[in-house]
Amino acid sequence: MTDETFELKLRLLDRQVVDPDGAMICKVDDVELARADDGGFVVTALLAGPLALGPRLPGRLGRWTVALARRWSEDPEPQPRRIPFERVTELGSAVVLDRSRDELGIARLEDWMRTHVIERIPGSRHASE
């Protein structure tokens, strides 16, 4: 997976990221690049969350997104959520990882909504009938 050459914008950016079972994790909001020995770039990680998406949104909206995400973060040095590129097993209509969202520990908003809102409503653990 790591040796292939591809068009970043067309095949990676803004793609859906899923786990091996197809459960949706996040979007590829941005990528982390490093210089390769041959002078080209290699993707070292996928970046996700408002701190990765914010800088790609225009003007004030982008700045506010970043500022809000920083304020809400408990981290003194807030960074975008980072998924090392080694986790990627397939680049198709979605980017497939070899770990689930819980194992990666990203998307705090989902966890917060789950414990504070959804799990307080009866029936949240049951499949639909």
Binding site: Q16, V17, A23, M24, I25, C26, K27, D29, A48, R101, A107, E110, R114, I118, E119, I121, G123, S124, R125, H126, A127, S128
Partner: peptide, 12 residues
Amino acid sequence: FGWQWGKFVRPR
């Protein structure tokens, strides 16, 4: 935003 969606998974 790439969030999990749908009724094919449990609400939680």
